[in-house]
């Protein structure tokens, strides 16, 4: 992969279910992410996607293209227009830089748009090197040091 390489777009239907379950699995119980009346009382027309779900979708968009074992180093996300139920979020990305350090380090610029405009702009840095879990610290076995 080289600088300037576009990633294939990913189209995500923003269902009410995605918004609510996204909030739940990120442990975000703010009412605006699951209660339409509470969202309206705060000036939004409906529930809207939380930032942690947007983070997750952007991250998996990038890692799924880099293959198993790609490791994220940095993720910077700025939100624009909200994602409401019924929207369609289209993520697009371009690899903007590639460097060789300890493995291949890529920077990907990602944008996500829906019917009302730009929902997210993000910069993701990843290393294409499988993570290996370090061996557990030595525990004193039978007859070992106390």
């Amino acid at each position: 992969m080289t600088g300037g390489t576009p990633l294939p777009p990913l189209v995500i239907p923003v269902t009410r279910t995605l918004i609510v379950t996204g909030a739940l699995v990120t442990r975000d119980f703010q009412d605006v992410h699951h209660d339409p009346e509470a969202a309206r009382a705060k000036g939004a027309p409906d529930v809207f996607m939380n930032i942690l779900t947007t983070n997750g979708l952007v991250a998996r968009y990038v890692t799924s293209h880099l293959g198993p074992g790609a490791t994220l180093r940095r993720l910077a996300v700025r939100l624009g227009v909200p994602n409401y139920p019924g929207d369609t979020l289209t993520l697009t990305g371009t690899v903007t830089s590639v460097s060789e350090e300890s493995g291949e380090v890529l920077t990907v610029e990602v944008t996500g748009t829906n019917e009302r405009g730009r929902h997210v702009t993000a910069t993701v840095t990843a290393t294409v090197t499988a993570v290996v879990r370090p061996a557990p610290a030595d525990h004193p076995g039978p007859g070992g040091e106390p």
Binding site: G22, T26, L52, G56, A59, R60
Partner: peptide, 29 residues
């Protein structure tokens, strides 16, 4: 499941946590 992340490194008892879950671990819920 919700994010659609199917990377096998996140599956099973020895799974590594997706990096983007960082904030999830400190959420009050």
């Amino acid at each position: 499941e919700v994010m659609g992340d199917t990377d096998p490194v996140h599956q099973g008892p020895g799974a590594v946590a997706p990096a983007a879950m960082l904030q999830v671990w400190i959420m009050r819920g």
